Simulated scan of single mutants.
Amino acid sequence: MFRMILTHGLIAGVVVGVPLFMMGTLMADNPPTGAVGMAIGYLTMLIAFTTIFVAIKRRRDVELGGVIRFWPALGMGLAIALVGSLCYILAWEAVLAVNGGDFIASMSEQMVAERQAAGASAAEIAELRTQMAEMQRIYTNSFARFAITFVEVFPVGLLVSLLSAALLRNPRFLPLRTA
């Protein structure tokens, strides 16, 4: 089972990490922002974590004779999500290393420019600059940055794990078809 967790977790990590790295390095000057950037990111995460469903189904059908309980399925899904999330964190750290680690400063300037273009008052802009300065201070701490990045990706894996475990505990849901 450890091999299956590692294999599917690394596949998920590559599926989510490579696009992150490519967008973070190739599109560093003009990254997708707002709803478009979030949609691309979370859709990629969702696609990557479909490996959780595949792995639980394979374990249920091939190794366990068509039956798996909820908790073991959830545990397996969470382990795969953890491996995939760690790959995502490593990809993000690689993006920061390639780009000089100044992500928050450039994001701050972009957010300020967007707010100014939307007609925000000087007080609102000053408050945004203060918040972003605090975020930049927090982001310089490696552990805090890892935690922030982990919280970005792991909930998607948690959701897919819960859904997969709930569906696949029923042996009549997508049963193995033998010829």
Results as ranks from 00 to 15, higher is better:
R3W: 09
T7H: 06
L10I: 15
G13A: 12
V18E: 10
L20P: 01
L20R: 08
F21M: 10
T25V: 15
M27L: 11
P31D: 03
P32C: 06
T33E: 13
G34P: 06
G34R: 04
G34T: 05
G34W: 05
V36I: 15
L43Y: 06
L46M: 04
F49D: 09
T50M: 15
T51N: 07
A55V: 02
R59I: 11
I68R: 01
F70R: 03
F70K: 00
M76T: 15
M76H: 14
M76F: 11
G77H: 03
L78V: 09
A81F: 05
G84R: 03
V95T: 14
A97K: 04
V98I: 11
G100F: 02
A105G: 13
A105E: 14
S106L: 06
S106W: 04
S108F: 07
S108D: 12
Q110V: 09
M111W: 05
V112I: 13
E114R: 01
E114D: 11
R115T: 09
A117F: 04
A117E: 08
A122R: 04
A123T: 11
E124H: 01
L128K: 00
R129Y: 01
E134Q: 07
E134W: 01
E134K: 06
I138N: 08
Y139L: 04
T140P: 00
F143G: 07
F146C: 03
F154V: 11
P155T: 08
V160I: 14
A165I: 01
A165C: 07
L168F: 02
R169K: 10
R169E: 12
P171E: 05
P171D: 11
F173S: 10
